[in-house]
Design a protein around this nucleic acid. Structure first.
Lengths: 331, 331
DNA sequence: AGGTGGCTTGCACCCGGTTGCAAAAAAACG
DNA sequence: CGTTTTTTTGCAACCGGGTGCAAGCCACCT
């Protein structure tokens, strides 16, 4: 069986409290006592049980990491950064996959049963209902890659999707495209809506530019490819702003299959700057999302929220930048 | 504060045990009592605290999911399948990132402190020391994507990497290549070694075939690309067996940049059959690893291990198959 | 020596649950 | 209807550990 407090206390010939205090920082233990206990503990190979401890301290150091997009390679990077960052701060991620879950309350209840200290909802597609459900249940929550919904009281770390749409539009304008399109992800995703709205809004000041839009039914290569195929059968625009790099890469494949060249016959700009976008055989011009910085900031914010659960809700927006590669004609 | 057993008991006017029994299946509770308790519980919004429960039941339903490769997109799929599969069985994955951890004991201690019921080490590169450390600590452990080390007593689910090497060699032979190479991942990874050994061994029966090998220093696009670049500056073979699709795709990019065609000037075969390998602009001939089936099997095996921790160690090997696409010349 | 104050220590109770046991209640039996 | 058997129920102890409180210890001071 496992070594417990009691065993250590018995071996050291002291009370259980003494042992407990030795492993609680900030507790008062004499030098002699500490040595005695530590000796006994290491003889026995003791280490305190976090879960038992959490009953009285009310801290599990468990953080629920909730995600719903396990197809976009970008999220692997997100997981990597989150797990490392949390580990560095002595926190542990409890992973939750919401891919086919639609009821926020079920996941809230699950995570409450495990007494997580906080929850990070990491998704650009998930409705804010999920984050709100946690908040309403009294669980500290933060929406990473979320959207700035001005009216609600929620911690959010994200990018300004509307502004990204504008940036893409401005790139097109600066390059003299006159007939452009938006090729978004799932039309219901908030990120898609925001990107489209920024894009269209910026172009609406330029009546001579014609604009169209289309939506892929998923943030995936195949969805991007199929949608572009259909577009090519009708009357395509000169350049497309794609809602995500992976969609852009799918579109790229359809365009090349049709015997067209990029950027000669058609321009493309993506969004995310996933690693692959920089691969030499892809070389996609795209809008860089500062994933590392956002994750780091999310973790820091979460740590402060744990310190002060009543901390006033904060929306942290990160600026994106255009990464010029080879899929738009020169300015 | 949170609703506890006591609150429910008080409201229902019954003892705490009665409430506990209502929420423990297999316990004896009368119909009337159950109704009374359930009413009180739902009035108060009570749900039992898993961690407190685990103290006496000695089951947390927490499974440590240990991984060290957060760069290969295949692992995103692995995470997806694992998290869903575990959730379906009412288990929760506690994610551990071992990317820069070298001391097995530290992670063992950490997971023991959280009383995980079991650990899945999901990695084809991690040394078996990690899995052994868990086993020696008395934690049920399973090595997924591991290697068949005949002598050690450990549950393993994996592919036969040696046989994969052989398959690649046979493909080359069947197509009449006479000068071939192995382009592996990190030379220290057990998977790399096994693939190389099968490949070389199969070819050793054919003395007229010349064989070379090279190693990329990571399972990544850039490593594959760089390594192939160097190869092209010397005297390249006619076809390469790459230790992973992502390396193959990197190599592909270097080959095309050098103005060579695939499979005209050089043949490539990968390993994994990651989603991207099937993308139209990549179309990589590769060896398919049945990820879904392996993960499913791992989870089932883990569940049985939890049922019977002394279960006799089992090595489950999954056969791989060649997926013919467009990067080898026709047979 | 006696008094005083500051650390240490152990006791006992608590965290939120589970469970063996025996008493109480209900059901089955003659 | 009383008796025996089976279920239900509550008590109390326990899981592994934290912590307020008061007693014990020690050093220091007068």
């Amino acid at each position: 069986m496992n070594v417990t407090l009691k065993d250590v206390a018995a071996r050291a010939g002291v009370s259980r409290s003494a042992v407990s205090r030795t492993f609680t920082d900030g507790a008062s233990v004499s030098r002699k006592m500490r040595r005695k206990v530590e000796k006994a503990a290491s003889d026995l190979g003791y280490s305190p049980n976090f879960l038992a401890r959490s009953l009285t301290t009310r801290r599990t150091k468990l953080i629920g990491l909730v995600a719903d997009n396990y197809h976009n390679p970008v999220f692997l990077k997100v997981f990597d950064l989150f797990t490392r960052g949390l580990q560095d701060r002595d926190l542990r991620p409890l992973l939750v996959n919401l891919s086919d879950e639609t009821d926020p309350l079920k996941s809230v209840q699950m995570l409450k049963q495990y007494s997580v200290d906080g929850v990070v909802v990491a998704s650009s597609t998930l409705s804010t209902d999920f984050a709100h459900a946690f908040r309403d249940a009294g669980v500290p929550v933060l929406h990473a890659f979320g959207r700035n919904v001005g009216t609600t009281q929620l911690h959010v770390v994200g990018i300004d999707n509307v502004e990204c749409g504008r940036m893409a539009a401005r790139e097109f304008l600066a390059r003299g495209y006159t007939n452009v399109g938006f090729l978004g992800g799932p039309p219901m995703a908030t990120s898609t809506k925001d990107r489209a709205s920024g894009f269209l809004n910026e172009l609406s000041d330029h009546p001579k530019i014609s604009v169209s839009n289309a939506y892929a039914d998923a943030y995936s290569f195949n969805a991007g490819r199929e949608t572009m195929r259909k577009i090519l059968n009708t009357s395509p625009a000169q350049a497309y702003f794609c809602g995500d790099d992976v969609i852009a890469i799918g579109a790229m494949s359809a365009i090349r299959d049709a015997g067209l060249s990029i950027p000669g016959d058609m321009g493309l700009i993506g969004l995310n700057d996933m690693e692959m976008a920089g691969w030499a055989n892809i070389n996609l011009t795209t809008i860089h999302q500062p994933i590392r910085e956002m994750v780091e900031s999310s973790i820091e914010l979460m740590v402060s929220i744990l310190d002060d659960p009543d901390r006033y809700p904060e929306v942290r927006m990160f600026p994106c930048t255009v990464v010029e590669r080879g899929t738009l004609k020169p300015r």
